[in-house]
Design a protein around this nucleic acid. Sequence first.
DNA 1: GTCAAAATGTACAATGTGGTTCATTTGGTC
DNA 2: GACCAAATGAACCACATTGTACATTTTGAC
Lengths: 270, 270
Amino acid sequence: MPDAKNHAVAGPVSAERGQDPAVVSSSSEPKAGSLHRSADEQVSVAAEVADGPAMKPAKSGRNASSWSQDPDGVRRNILDVARAEFVENGLSGARVDEIAAKTKTSKRMIYYYFTDKEGLYRAVLEEAYSQIRELERTLDLGTLSPPDALAALAGFTFDYHADHADFVRLVMIENIHHARHLKMSGTIGALNSSAIDMIREIYERGVAGGAFRAGIDPMNIHLTISALSFYNVSNRASIAQVFAHDMGAAPARADRRASVIDTVIRSVRA
Amino acid sequence: MPDAKNHAVAGPVSAERGQDPAVVSSSSEPKAGSLHRSADEQVSVAAEVADGPAMKPAKSGRNASSWSQDPDGVRRNILDVARAEFVENGLSGARVDEIAAKTKTSKRMIYYYFTDKEGLYRAVLEEAYSQIRELERTLDLGTLSPPDALAALAGFTFDYHADHADFVRLVMIENIHHARHLKMSGTIGALNSSAIDMIREIYERGVAGGAFRAGIDPMNIHLTISALSFYNVSNRASIAQVFAHDMGAAPARADRRASVIDTVIRSVRA
DNA sequence: GTCAAAATGTACAATGTGGTTCATTTGGTC
DNA sequence: GACCAAATGAACCACATTGTACATTTTGAC
């Protein structure tokens, strides 16, 4: 267990029990509604906005004691909110207080479960990477002809990026920080080559069958597919501004998708 | 003059005279050494680090009065330091105090010349964009055959990005912020289509001559070139981490360059 | 039921950070 | 050489932001 983190965390803080896996139980549903603020309270908050300091008798928030514990739900909730905030504002731009406020729990819990702002960020990042790996694994391109398989892979990659701007932005943010947190992670980097292996398999099959020309490094193919899938999403805002061209719009996206697949195929075929 | 900025800057601050052009005089050399802290003082600072509180007799820093004014030099110096800091830490991550510290002047001057942290960032961003535009303009591809011209353009774009990670990172940062500052700028977006026009010219020439296939949107070609040039640099850190592949290394870069050019050409030829 | 560990709430402390105030010096102009 | 605007210095302020201390409640084991 390469656990180089958790350095200097002295003090009587009881947090950081063995329970380190940030992957959390994606199986056990968060048991919606089991968290602290009851639906009533949520309403009361809304009412407060509408009524102003009207229903003051409701004391200082929470009705006198009674809340159920739900560690997984709380973690899940924090992670979801944090992800949205980090994605929107970056690591330095995101505010712990803001994250806490949008959570069903409190700031205290963030530090309880994630130690740090960075710890929280790392958990978000790791989950994002693990999710795309998960999906990648479900791909079965072995039955398709090499060109079809490569086209399918390119199409999948393009779609994944286009549909998960969250992920793309997290990767951008992480790159701004020189991938410092990826380095710490350990979780990531293990199942790295899987994507490359998939491409290599398809490519070698294609070369053997004469459909693809020889001498290309699979890494090169991967870079081309990734670049062409990533850029439209990562640079959507600046492209829109500088060229008045909205890559997010359906027609532009569809056109681009076809073009990307075409470009990838042309780049390898004999 | 579409000057929608400079809103609410009330107060007796005398700053913001007509002198708005952030492009500054890149012609008038900063007259090195004409700034405030003399070489002697710089040394004394270093000595202080080495000697500790030894040479206290040197009073509180600056020797009694005497400094020469150099507005352009100061601006230039601030911009340079700020660029480095923003590039390294992002807009939210960069600290005005830190920028000021690394400057030959003081924080006061930053606000005097740039009003805001955002104003400073905007100036940095605008300059970065104006620089690449400048270079682009020097390109003369009219004499080359369409395929050669396109290859040259792709090569130039690839090299520019690889050689100016600063620029790439600024664009990334700006995209994280949804290009909000590009929108404000006004300076940018004007000479936008120049790149597209260049490509269109080459492409149409190529189609007419039979070298390129018809029916491609020049924007598409531009996106392909940009994506393939940008990604290696923008995602260098995460690629290195996840795939243990350093895009910055000379051989990898050269290989990739050739591959990118090849891919671009293949994507358009008949 | 008792008890301890886990989970959570509330308030606060300590420092970081953007921005400003006030005073002073230069440099050109007449 | 007087004068005024531009340019600069140094300290300072108000508030934002991360992180913590302390108290309290649940929950499961025995």
